[in-house]
Simulated scan of single mutants.
Amino acid sequence: MISVSRVSKTYGSGAAAVRALDDVSLSVSRGEIFGVVGQSGAGKSTLIRTINSLERPDSGSVLVDGREMTTLSGAELRAARHNIGMIFQHFNLLSSRTVQANVELSLEITGAGRPARRARALEILELVGLHGKAQAYPAQLSGGQKQRVGIARALASSPSVLLSDEATSALDPETTRQILDLIRELSKDLGLTVLLITHEMDVVKRICDSAAVMSGGRILEQGPVDQLLTTEKSLLGQALFPLGEIPETSSAVVEITFNGVTTDRPVIAQLARKHGIDVGILGAAVETIHGRQTGRTRLELPGDELTVAGAVEDLRSQGLFVEVIK
């Protein structure tokens, strides 16, 4: 649905040049929710702006629903953008317009008649949970309600792609969860493909099917979230489950990753009894990812090489992902 291939973008020239995107490639499947994670300055916003051609890349290809966005202009580009909705961190609502009029704005641009605009605006406001707020003004709304208006406006033209630029960064944690759940629900009900950028790991945990880690204008890793959690030295896995520094120890150190199938089993106690070792817990983190308990535990395994190897094999035989740290 979205395919970015070897895209580069530089601002400025000479000594002042900033390479915002450096040979970036990623692919988002139809109906998928894909998160791009990175700190400020990583290039996330530039990336998302190249997808709807608010920025033109210096090189590379950007395909959205089969259309090469980098070659479009004029009426063709406007038509392609109607298939791409976008929501923003600071809502970008027009304060002088009512909620309904804000939602109708994109339809006005397409030339839709007033009755059709009104019907679609009321329909989409109902869908995002703002029934009864059509004649309110932005100043009368909470932050969460403003973002719901932003989502409704983005979906008014019935796009197949939704881009989210840090859409929950200005919201409190509970409102963030509500907005993320709404995006997940809309993606499922409307068949939307969602690409969101964020610096918040909670966003990835809650709704993302796949994710990419971005830094310095480059994609460092990408793939399905479940797959990245069971990939050795995964940056995303480490960020989702921060276990701190490894203490000085002469024993072997391993990390095990488990999901909902294994969280309720006494894995560590059984391991200690079976192999006769005093297992030490050096760190643990448990999160709910896609509604399923997932966690990572760092263990200290004393004993000789053969004993440790047997313990590791035992853990792996139970379907656990085991990474030997030292």
Rank of each mutant, 00 (worst) to 15 (best):
Pro173Phe: 08
Ser142Arg: 08
Lys205Gly: 12
Arg206Thr: 01
Leu182Arg: 02
Arg148Ala: 03
Ala167Arg: 04
Arg218Gln: 14
Arg218Tyr: 02
Leu190Thr: 09
Glu185Lys: 14
Ile197Arg: 06
Leu180Phe: 02
Arg177Tyr: 10
Glu232Gln: 13
Ser187His: 09
Pro159Gln: 05
Glu185Ala: 15
Ile207Asn: 01
Ser158Tyr: 05
Pro173Glu: 08
Ala211Gly: 13
Ile197Phe: 09
Ala170Met: 08
Leu155His: 07
Arg148Phe: 00
His199Gln: 13
Leu235Trp: 06
Val225His: 09
Gly150Tyr: 02
Ser234Ile: 06
Ser158His: 12
Glu166Cys: 12
Gly150Asp: 01
Glu166Tyr: 10
Leu220Asn: 13
Val204Ile: 15
Gln227Cys: 09
Pro173Thr: 10
Gly150Asn: 02
Leu182Phe: 03
Ser158Ile: 05
Ser234Asn: 04
Leu180Gln: 06
Asp226Ile: 11
Ala154Arg: 01
Leu195Tyr: 04
Arg184Ser: 14
Asp202Leu: 12
Ser169Cys: 01
Glu200Asn: 12
Asp172Val: 11
Glu221His: 09
Leu236Thr: 05
Ser187Leu: 10
Leu163Trp: 07
Gly144Glu: 11
Glu166Phe: 05
Ala167Asn: 13
Val149Gly: 01
Gln227Ile: 12
Arg148Cys: 01
Lys188Pro: 06
Ile219Asn: 03
Leu163Arg: 03
Gln222Pro: 11
Lys188Ile: 12
Ile179Phe: 01
Ser157Trp: 07
Leu196Arg: 03
Asp189Ala: 15
Asp189Val: 14
Gln145Asp: 08
Leu162Thr: 07
Leu182Gln: 02
Gly191Trp: 10
Ala152Pro: 02
Arg177Ala: 15
Ser234Glu: 01
Ala239Ile: 12
Leu180Cys: 03
Gln145Lys: 02
Ile219Val: 15
Glu232Trp: 02
Gly216Met: 11
Lys233Val: 11
Gly144Pro: 09
Leu163Lys: 04
Leu171Lys: 02
Leu236Ala: 08
Val204Thr: 06
Leu141Thr: 00
Ser157Asp: 10
Gly223Ala: 14
Thr198Trp: 05
Gln147Arg: 04
Leu196Ile: 08
Ser158Asp: 12
Leu235Val: 12
Met201His: 06
Leu163Pro: 03
Gln140Leu: 04
Thr230Ser: 11
Gln222Ile: 13
Ala167Gln: 10
Pro173Arg: 12
Ser187Gly: 15
Thr168Tyr: 02
Ser215Lys: 15
Ser187Ala: 15
Val161His: 00
Leu195Cys: 14
Leu236Val: 07
Gln140Ser: 03
Leu171Gln: 00
Asp202Gly: 15
Ile179Lys: 00
Gln147Val: 00
Glu200Cys: 03
Lys205Tyr: 12
Ala211Glu: 04
Leu235Glu: 09
Val194Ala: 01
Gln145Ser: 05
Lys146Val: 07
Glu232Pro: 07
